[in-house]
Design a binder for these strands. Structure first.
Lengths: 264, 264
DNA sequence: CGGCAGATTGACAACGGTCAATTTACGTGG
DNA sequence: CCACGTAAATTGACCGTTGTCAATCTGCCG
C-alpha cells in the first residue's frame, strides 16, 4: 500500500538530518525574500545526502557546485514555472513544497504531484524544451536552480552524475506508474490511506516525524491528485478518525495506526 | 482529448514509411524464431526515423550501431522481462507490440502502458537496477537489445545521443502524466475515446492508417489500463458504434468520426 | 470583529461495478 | 475442412460507491 505513491527511491543514507545540519538549513530558510537569487552550494547543503549529489564524493560535489549558480525564493501560491514556459533548468527543492498541475484545453486540470524538500522539479520540460505543467509553491519555498545544459555537459564528464540523473528520471517514471496503479485499481479509502502513508514515508526519509504530518495542500488538491472529490477526501479522513486510525486537526494529521492504514 | 494518452513526442520526420522501407521492415518481421538473437543495425532499419537514432546523422548512427549488438524475438504472451529482473538493457521495439504490467503484493495488477513499433521499453529499470514491471508481448514481436551501460558510455561522448536519451526519459514522464490526468478526471466515455485517438495518432506517426485500428490487447487489458471494467469498455464501444462514431468488429475498430470522438 | 476560503456533513442521484447468461471468435485436433 | 472446447466479448438487471448540491461550521487574516 505505502509504495503506490512512492515518490523517490529512498536515499541510501537515510540517516536523517540532525543538529547543526538542520540549523544551518533553517538559517538559509529564514532569509525569505521573493525572487531573490543567491549563490547556492551543494557542498555544505543540509539536503546533499538525499538531493542531486547523493552518490557523489566531495570532489565530485565540488564540480557539481560549478553548475548550480543560485537559488530562488518562491512565495506560497506563486509559480516556479508554468506549462509552456521555455525549459532551461531543473530545480532541487531546498525547502518548502510544491504541487505540479497539468491542464487540458477544456479547462479541466489535475494535480499531478506533490514535491517535498530534497526532491527535484522540472524533469517534464526536457523532452519538448517547454514545461508540461505548472509548478506552484504550497508554502514559501526555496529552490536551487540547475541549468540543464550545464548539467548535461557535466554528465558527459562524470559517470556518477550521469548515473544519478538517469536514475532520477527513471524513478519519476516509476513513481508515476505507482500513481497510475493507485488511480486505476484502488477505491477511495485505499487511495487516501496510500496517500497518507506515502507522505509519511517521505517525511521519514528526510528525518522528520512519520507519524505527525502537516498537509500543506487543500482537500481539493488532495482530491484532484487522488482522482476524487474534496468531499470524499474529507469524509474518508473523518471516517478514519472515527475508526481510530488517525487524528485529524485541519491540516495536521497524526497517524495512530500505520499497520491498519497499510492493510486497508 | 487525443493527447491525454500521448505516448511519445511525434517524430520530427513524420514522413512515414513507404515502399522499400516497409518491405525491408516486413522482411525482418517475417523471420520469426523464438528467442533468436541476431545482429541488429540502426543504419538500415526502417524504424530509424522514429526510434533511437531519430536526430542522429549517419556517422552518429554508425556509432550507435556499435552498442546495439542483437535483436530478440518474443512470442505472443511471453515476457521480454519481468518485475524484479536485473536491469541491463533497454529495448527498441522493432516490430509487434507489448503491454507493461505493474503488480502489487495483494495480487492486484494493472496494465501501465501499451508499446507499439518504434517505441522504447525498459526505462523503468534504470533507477533501481531492477525492472519495475512485466513487459509481455501482445503478438509475436522483435526488439533491439540496447545494453544500457554501453549506451550511457556513448552518451558521454555524443551530445546528440545524450539529448535523445534524456528526451526519451522525459517524454515517458509526460506520457504518464497524461494517463494520470485521464484516470483522475475523465469519465468512462472520455477515457475510451482518448484511448482510441491515442492509438490512432501513434499509428499515423508510423505511417499506418489512423482510421483503421487493430487492437491487439483484450477488452480486459484496455479496461485495466483505463481504470475500468472490461464490461464497461465493451458497452462503451458498442454505444460509440450505435452513435456512428466507430465501427467495431472484434479487435478491428474503424474510427468514423474522429472529430466527434475528440469532442466527447 | 467581520469576511472569506476551506472543511465538514447530509440527502440524493448517477455512473460504473458486479453477477450472470449468451454469443462470438479462435485455435486444436479429428 | 469441420467439430469442438475454451477464451473473449457482448448484453442485461441490479446494486453500491462516489459525485453532486446544499447547508453549516471552522479557522485564518486583515
Amino acid at each position: 500500500m505505502s509504495d503506490y505513491l512512492h515518490q523517490e527511491a529512498p536515499p541510501a543514507t537515510s540517516t536523517a538530518l540532525h543538529g547543526e545540519q538542520v540549523l544551518q538549513f533553517l538559517q538559509v530558510d529564514t532569509v525569505p525574500r521573493a525572487s531573490t537569487a543567491r549563490k547556492a552550494s551543494c557542498s555544505n547543503c543540509a539536503m546533499r545526502a538525499i538531493c542531486m549529489g547523493g552518490n557523489l564524493n566531495d570532489a565530485e560535489r565540488n564540480r557539481l557546485d560549478t553548475v548550480i549558480h543560485n537559488w530562488r525564493m518562491i512565495r506560497r501560491g506563486e509559480a516556479l514555472y508554468r506549462a509552456g514556459d521555455a525549459f532551461q533548468s531543473i530545480y532541487a527543492l531546498r525547502s518548502g513544497s510544491f504541487k505540479t498541475v497539468v491542464a487540458h484545453q477544456n479547462g479541466c486540470e489535475q494535480v499531478s504531484g506533490f514535491f517535498l524538500t530534497g526532491e527535484t522539479l522540472g524533469l517534464d520540460g526536457i523532452c519538448t524544451e517547454r514545461h508540461a505543467c505548472d509548478a506552484i509553491a504550497l508554502e514559501d519555498s526555496a529552490v536551487c536552480v540547475i541549468p540543464f545544459h550545464l548539467l548535461e555537459a557535466l554528465c558527459r564528464e562524470m559517470r556518477s552524475l550521469q548515473q544519478h540523473v538517469h536514475r532520477m528520471l527513471s524513478s519519476e517514471i516509476v513513481r508515476e506508474s505507482g500513481v497510475m496503479l493507485l488511480l486505476a485499481s484502488l477505491n477511495a479509502d485505499q487511495r487516501v490511506a496510500a496517500f497518507l502513508l506515502n507522505i509519511s514515508a517521505r517525511q521519514k526519509a528526510r528525518g522528520y516525524s512519520h507519524r505527525e504530518l502537516t498537509l500543506r495542500m487543500t482537500r481539493e488538491e488532495i482530491g484532484s491528485y487522488l482522482g476524487m472529490k474534496l468531499e470524499t477526501v474529507s469524509r474518508t479522513l473523518s471516517r478514519f478518525q472515527r475508526d481510530g486510525l488517525i487524528c485529524v486537526k485541519g491540516k495536521r494529521v497524526i497517524l495512530q495506526d500505520l499497520d491498519a492504514l497499510d492493510r486497508i
